[in-house]
């Protein structure tokens, strides 16, 4: 079937902003191209060589003109830059009330996890008019998560989180592409995002309902014996994790710690992740270096499980940390906690 669009759908709140800027630059392009082509044609018609020994007047330059065609483009460029930054700020800063969805890219599929524990492969569902914040990572190589209809894109980088947000403004089904070349089946790493009304969405969610991410994370929290040290009230061995998300944490900078005096860190997802993978990287003030906590690498906590743990930590309210039961044992610095089934 041969349909022939040249304008992608514009289905998010940021899309019109991007489009306005796009149209402005298109206008600049057309203007400049018309000017250049027009003058080329005009000069060709006016000044073609009429005789073999014709010698035109020899101009060598004009300071005024040269300053003019340096200064005017500079001003135009600065305008475009400033406008670009304004749109970029819209693109990178998600609203505070965004719904979190976690995305893991791997060769060659996108895995999505919802806060309620629902999972999808190469598909995503969103509610019309409700902002969604994607936290993206990769299990293997670089990928890039792109939804052209929303004008958003972000690379999936192994080893860290990147974010992307959108607020759909139009119900429908849109493409998800991987735009960073990722190996043999790169072009099959595509998916669909379905934007639906709130009611349909809730119905869909309930059909897919599983245990919530935070609930899964709570199980892991016990299974990986995190609870042994992060025990809530007693903060002798490790800091409490209650309401830690997006708090500013002063860091330990006494002997041996790798950070500068007075440094703090924002406890965002990247920091939580780093602290699980490499506990000694940035230790909260009051705890010794190196950390007594074992490092939970990919063989102990997969990227999917990492999202569940973080969802749980984010959900932890004051006084909610479970107490340790008699079965939990202390993880040792050398050995790993008991292997997972």
């Amino acid at each position: 079937m041969w349909d022939f669009p040249i304008w992608p759908e514009s289905a998010s709140t940021v899309a019109p902003s991007v489009e306005a800027l796009y149209l402005f630059i298109v206008a600049l392009n057309i203007g400049m191209t018309a000017l250049v082509f027009g003058l080329l044609v005009l000069f060709s018609v006016l000044y073609y060589r009429r005789a073999d020994d014709q010698v035109p007047p020899q101009y060598h330059g004009s300071m005024l003109l040269e300053i003019g065609w340096t200064a005017i483009p500079t001003v135009i460029c600065l305008i475009v830059f400033a406008w670009g930054v304004k749109v970029y700020a819209e693109l990178v800063v998600p609203p505070a009330d965004s719904m979190d969805v976690y995305i893991v890219g791997r060769q060659w599929m996108w895995k999505a996890q919802y806060p309620g524990g629902q999972r999808e492969i190469n598909a995503l569902h969103a509610v019309l008019g409700k902002p969604v914040k994607l936290t993206i990572t990769s299990e293997d190589v670089l990928h890039s998560f792109s939804i052209p209809a929303f004008r958003v894109k972000s690379d999936a980088v192994p080893g860290r989180y990147t974010t992307l947000w959108f607020q759909p403004t139009q119900a429908g089904v849109y493409h998800i592409f991987c735009t960073e070349y990722c190996g043999t089946e790169h072009s099959r790493m595509i998916g669909k995002i379905t934007v639906m009304e709130e009611g349909d969405y809730q119905k869909w969610l309930s059909e897919k309902a599983e245990l919530g991410d935070a609930l899964q994370g709570r199980k892991l929290f016990a299974k990986l014996q995190c609870v042994t040290c992060h025990a809530g009230e007693s903060q002798a061995r490790a800091p409490s994790l209650e309401e830690i998300h997006m708090k500013r944490i002063p860091l330990s900078f006494d002997k041996g710690s790798p950070v500068a005096p007075g440094a703090t860190v924002l406890a965002d997802e990247n920091y939580l992740r780093e602290s699980i993978r490499y506990p000694s990287a940035k230790i909260a003030a009051g705890y010794q270096y190196p950390s007594i906590m074992p490092a939970y690498d990919e063989s102990l906590v997969s990227e999917d499980e990492m999202f569940q743990l973080i969802a749980y930590i984010k959900s932890l309210k004051k006084g909610q940390t479970p107490t340790r039961n008699e079965h939990t044992t202390t993880p040792t610095a050398l050995g790993a906690p008991a292997g997972r089934p």
């Binding site: 490499y278 990287a281 074992p294 490092a295 690498d297 050398l334 050995g335 790993a336």
Partner: peptide
């Protein structure tokens, strides 16, 4: 074994 568990 212990080295493989040590990010440092």
């Amino acid at each position: 074994e212990s080295d493989s568990r040590n990010p440092e």
